[in-house]
Amino acid sequence: MNAIDALAQLCPPPDDPPGPIDWGAVETVLGMRLPADYKRLAAVYGPGDFADFISICHPHGYTEYSNLTGRMPGIVREYVQQDYDQGEAPVPCHPQHLFSMGGIGNGEKLFWITDPLDAPDTWRIAGSEDRGLRWFTFDGTLSEFLVSVLSRETAVSQGPVGFAPAVPGPWVPVNVRTRPPVDTESIREWGRAQGYDVPFRGRVPLVVLEAWERAHPL
């Protein structure tokens, strides 16, 4: 039995399947490929929460906090980078290899360790606890992590086992500092100079935007 089937036994997915996902467009925006396991998970469950405690970001997330291609993953990485630079938290790897894709409690975060970047099906899971003061890692896929937690093999505080689909609501912007508008062509030129593969038209990949923002702090 694969992890998705095992998860479905623990937490039956919604009766109404979520809408189709354009994974090519999603991965273009992010500037990286995603694990096949995550794609199956997102296609079966859609946006929502497991055990009323574990939230997984989704390409169709209804808020900027839950949308996989929104600003939140980059903002979280910036906060982790600050902790890493100041030696305030035992981050398990360099923050450039962390991509925030969920939450496991009151402000606690769940990450992929995206190393190597071009082998997403080998990525491990990392999580911060106690608001970043403690970290854990899990050697497996996101679905395997969820099965392990919901079957009580891995200890993470949680509510009753189950899945609750997210409810659409008004888009709530992330409340963070903003920077003045920047010409995207300048970012493209900077990205190419740094060795990134940046298309000449369309959206600038998220990985390039995040790198530019780290190199040009507010």
Score class of each variant (00 low, 15 high):
residue 99 F to S: 01
residue 157 S to I: 13
residue 78 E to Y: 15
residue 130 D to M: 15
residue 88 E to A: 08
residue 106 N to P: 07
residue 143 S to L: 11
residue 104 I to A: 00
residue 85 D to V: 02
residue 100 S to M: 12
residue 137 T to D: 08
residue 117 L to M: 09
residue 86 Q to D: 11
residue 115 D to N: 04
residue 144 E to V: 03
residue 92 P to T: 00
residue 105 G to P: 04
residue 94 H to C: 01
residue 101 M to A: 06
residue 76 V to H: 00
residue 101 M to G: 10
residue 125 I to D: 05
residue 83 D to R: 08
residue 160 P to A: 14
residue 176 V to L: 11
residue 172 V to S: 15
residue 104 I to N: 03
residue 161 V to K: 10
residue 84 Y to K: 05
residue 172 V to Y: 06
residue 117 L to N: 03
residue 142 L to E: 06
residue 164 A to G: 08
residue 104 I to D: 02
residue 102 G to T: 04
residue 148 S to Y: 02
residue 86 Q to G: 15
residue 76 V to R: 08
residue 131 R to A: 15
residue 161 V to A: 14
residue 150 L to Y: 04
residue 103 G to K: 04
residue 104 I to C: 00
residue 83 D to W: 05
residue 147 V to Q: 06
residue 166 A to C: 07
residue 134 R to Y: 11
residue 98 L to I: 12
residue 123 W to G: 00
residue 97 H to V: 05
residue 113 I to A: 15
residue 78 E to M: 13
residue 153 E to L: 06
residue 92 P to W: 02
residue 140 G to M: 06
residue 131 R to Q: 12
residue 106 N to C: 15
residue 98 L to D: 14
residue 171 W to T: 11
residue 168 P to H: 01
residue 173 P to T: 04
residue 147 V to P: 05
residue 137 T to W: 07
residue 95 P to G: 08
residue 82 Q to G: 02
residue 92 P to H: 02
residue 172 V to R: 15
residue 158 Q to C: 10
residue 79 Y to W: 10
residue 153 E to G: 08
residue 78 E to P: 05
residue 89 A to Y: 00
